[in-house]
Amino acid sequence: LAFIIRQLLTNSIKYSEASDIVIKSYEQNDRTHLEVKDFGRGIDPKDISRIFDKGFTSTTKHHDHASTGMGLYLAKKAAKPLLIHMNVHSTPNLGTSFTLTFPKRNEFVNIISV
């Protein structure tokens, strides 16, 4: 989980060019949500479906030649066994919001004794 959050924050910092980053959590439908939102360059709509693909670095020109396209791929891969759903919403030139939706609390953990 720390890796996933670190990746989202790193991307927000890298692509938001000194603007604010908002991190919030909330409960909805008995699930916990964690949102990381930046106000940077955003993601081109044609790229949204590919951002979690291995090696994908966007079709938008960018100056970061060090990008490997592995960060979001590995974050998504790490989220799967944790049953965390990752959702992204982005508008070019307005920013990007990643939301992690955690699984419902397992009722089994509430059993004290049998």
Score class of each variant (00 low, 15 high):
Gln7Leu: 04
Ile43Ala: 10
Ser19Asp: 06
Ser67Phe: 13
Arg105Trp: 13
Leu82Ile: 10
Asn11Arg: 00
Gly69Met: 00
Arg31Phe: 09
Tyr73Asn: 09
Ile112Cys: 05
Gly69Lys: 00
Leu34Arg: 01
Arg31His: 11
Ser67Arg: 15
Leu34Phe: 05
Lys24Tyr: 13
His62Gly: 09
Phe56Glu: 11
His85Lys: 12
Ile111Val: 13
Ile84Phe: 12
Leu94Arg: 08
Met86Pro: 02
Asn110His: 10
Ile84Cys: 08
Ser25Pro: 04
Asn110Leu: 11
Ile23Tyr: 07
Lys76Glu: 14
Leu9Lys: 02
Arg31Pro: 09
Gln28Met: 11
Val88Gln: 05
Asn110Ser: 13
Arg50Glu: 02
Phe98Arg: 00
Val88Thr: 13
Met86His: 00
Arg105His: 14
Thr32Ser: 04
Thr99Asn: 04
Thr101Ile: 11
Asp20Arg: 07
Ser58His: 14
Lys104Met: 14
Ser19Asn: 12
Ser113Val: 09
Asp20Glu: 10
Ile48Ser: 01
Gly42Asp: 01
Lys76Met: 11
Tyr26Val: 14
His63Trp: 03
Thr96Arg: 02
Ser25Asp: 14
Thr32Gln: 03
Leu8Asn: 00
Pro92Gly: 01
Gln7Ser: 15
Lys46Arg: 10
Pro45Ile: 07
Asp64Val: 06
Phe108Gln: 10
Asn110Trp: 03
Gln28Lys: 09
Val36Phe: 08
Gly71Met: 05
Leu82Gly: 08
Tyr73Leu: 05
Phe3Leu: 08
Ile21Cys: 08
Arg6Ile: 13
Gly71Gln: 01
Asn106Leu: 13
Ser25Gln: 12
Ile23His: 06
Arg50Lys: 11
Ile43Thr: 12
Phe39Thr: 05
Phe98Pro: 00
Gln28Trp: 02
Pro92Val: 10
Ser49His: 09
Phe52Pro: 05
Phe52Leu: 10
Ser19Thr: 12
Arg6Lys: 15
Pro81Asp: 08
Asp44Ala: 15
Lys46Thr: 11
Val109Leu: 08
Asn11Gln: 00
Met70Asn: 11
Lys24Trp: 02
Ala78Arg: 10
Lys80Thr: 15
Phe108Pro: 02
Ala79Leu: 09
Thr10His: 06
Ile112Arg: 02
His33Glu: 02
Lys24His: 09
Thr10Leu: 06
Phe108Val: 11
Gly55Ser: 03
Leu74Arg: 01
Asn11Trp: 01
Thr91Gly: 00
Asp38Gln: 06
Leu34Ser: 01
Arg50Gln: 05
Phe52Glu: 03
Thr32Glu: 07
Ile5Asn: 03
Thr57Arg: 04
Val88Lys: 05
Met86Asp: 01
Leu74Glu: 00
Lys14Asn: 01
Lys37Glu: 15
Ile111Arg: 07
Thr101Val: 14
Asp64Gly: 02
Ser19Leu: 07
Thr91Asn: 03
Pro103Tyr: 13
Phe3Ser: 05
Ile21Gln: 06
Lys76Phe: 12
